[in-house]
Design a binder for these strands. Structure first.
Lengths: 334, 334
DNA sequence: CTGAAAGCGCTAACAA
DNA sequence: TTGTTAGCGCTTTCAG
């Protein structure tokens, strides 16, 4: 079969320890030995066996990306994040295991942890439960959550900054001279929607524009709900701008607006967040503020590596990569 | 730290070999020994270390799911399939590595293969290249392709049966009394679209309904293209049914139909395939024939395990799990 | 700076 | 049916 470290040692006429040192680029190796070993490695096409290394060091150089079956299509960003994390971790020579659990039952994770199959854990789309905390503690597992946890806990997390996204959206509309805002948001439990609203408000207040209770809708994220609610809102007050917390709400809002024979964007502008799944397929297309999720994934990769190297330190970070995608629903100058 | 097989052996007063036998449920173990070992294992909370086992057996019990960055959002099914594969493989006690490559550069795969990190490989969304075949051969890697390869090769593959999906779509429309069909398809290189067309034709021919050249559109999968082409087609002939090869084409077709003031579905029915990304968000909602991709993933999991166990046999299978999602764009009886 | 040798935790002949 | 023992391929003391 393929060459082992022993074969290389023999070929080079040195000890296996020396080969190991060269492979792992220890500084304390004489040029001659290094030279000999490298030649032998090349000749034998030597590639170190990862599992042997793992056994010897106790490290696996792999990280588990844990998520739930339930959020398969719910979260627009899930896989873009996974992609970013994989990309990032490959550069650190880590592998990524993809693991899913059902309805919060973490048995598969516990199993992998007890078999010491990973050096670190990235959690996405799973509530922080006592069971999770228990496993993390029991196996001293460096862990990173994607998304700020609802309740403060001892785990590190990384999240994108939805408030900043809200600010960007509001600024866009302001720059087009809009002054009368309707916020079509998710339910109060929807943290993301709330953060976005916060950002919008902050910007508007600076301009002396307040949002009354009636200017803020809290809805289930279903187009038909938004359509009804926005229709009603439009009948009560004259708006020239709508910020919709997600694509579904934006679609409903757009329909209500068009139903009311208002022109988009000349009479009223609409902006939303993310392009998932339909900002690009409405007529007119929806402007949106999206985050660069791949970048978030890259940052997450870096963060979990940090976490593995320095398990004691806790990281809590917001990452802001908002990008304004201006499209026909706001860009009426052309 | 945690208990090893030696600790258990000592505790139970037997040899490590016996413990190993119990752990791997060999038949040839006396009840007494088994009993003793099990008690000891429980007492010490023993869990075998996977990497040690890997080193000893040469097997890793993990499979790489290989895909490309480029198809991140292109393929609606990619992650549903990954999910199904993971689900399936966990039951076989396999782990899934998630690996992506850029523009067909398989270096990362070669690296993992040369380090003997996987027992098998599942490839999705990557053309079969000489490099891939080379790696598979060089490392004797049990491999399964998701999707029938364009050119016949020695690798096993599994794919869903798009022809059957086409048949289901056509039958649906026929059952509603439709007789005059327009097929809005992708470009000729689009195999999926072609297979679906094949299925549609087969069913129609049985009913003595032929499709002329003008009844079949070959378009880029962009809504605006479909809108224009369908508008033109509608002006030339009276159709009462449209089969659109994907959601984007269906959206364009729907717009053209509505533009022509035709009622959906009373005057004309529209059906498409898959629900990604917008079948549920048009007005009316689009009927579709979707495949149960999770099931496809499950089958793929089983198939790659088969492939690992019996590397010599080649599997080429179409899996058919079509599901008719009838919605407002065809269901005009209610 | 280098080599010998003892592991890492488990498996798998081979004997008994 | 069981135990002994020699690996699997690499790392890591500890001497030299």
């Amino acid at each position: 079969m393929s060459a082992t470290i022993n074969d290389v040692a023999k070929e080079a006429g040195v000890s296996t320890a020396s080969v190991s040192r060269v492979v792992n680029s220890f500084p304390s190796v004489s040029p001659e030995v290094r030279e000999k070993v490298e030649r032998a490695m090349k000749k034998l096409r030597f590639v170190p066996d990862r599992k042997a290394k793992s056994l010897a060091t106790g490290k696996t150089s792999s990280v588990v990306f844990l998520t739930s079956y339930e959020t398969l299509f719910e979260d627009p960003h899930k896989f873009a994040i996974l992609s970013g994390i994989e990309h990032s971790l490959m550069r650190y020579k880590y592998r990524v295991y993809f693991l899913q659990v059902e309805r919060g039952d973490l048995t598969p994770l516990r199993k992998m942890a007890s078999q010491k199959e990973m050096d670190g854990l990235v959690v996405h789309g799973i509530e922080v439960s006592d069971e999770l905390l228990g496993i993390v503690r029991e196996y001293a597992l460096p862990t990173l959550l994607i998304g700020e946890p609802k309740e403060k806990c001892s785990l590190s997390w990384i999240d994108n900054n939805n408030e900043v996204c809200g600010e960007v959206a509001a600024n866009c509309l302001l720059s087009h001279g809009r002054r009368s805002f309707l916020f079509v948001g998710g339910e109060v439990a929807d943290n993301i929607s709330c953060s976005r609203l916060l950002g919008v408000r902050r910007v508007l207040e600076k301009k002396g524009i307040g949002l009354d209770e009636g200017d803020i809708l809290s809805l289930e994220p279903v187009a038909i709900q938004a359509e009804k609610a926005v229709r009603k809102a439009l009948s009560q007050r004259k708006y020239d701008a709508i910020v919709a917390a997600n694509n579904f709400l934006a679609l409903g809002a757009l329909r209500a607006v068009q139903d009311a024979k208002m022109k988009v964007p000349s009479e009223i502008s609409i902006i939303t967040f993310d392009d998932y799944p339909l900002a690009l397929y409405t007529k007119p297309k929806l402007s949106s503020v999206s985050i660069d999720v791949h970048s978030l994934g890259l940052s997450a990769g870096r963060a979990i590596v940090e976490q593995i190297r320095h398990p004691e330190q806790v990281v809590e970070t917001y990452i802001a990569f908002p990008r304004l995608n201006e499209r026909a629903s706001t860009r009426y100058d052309k």
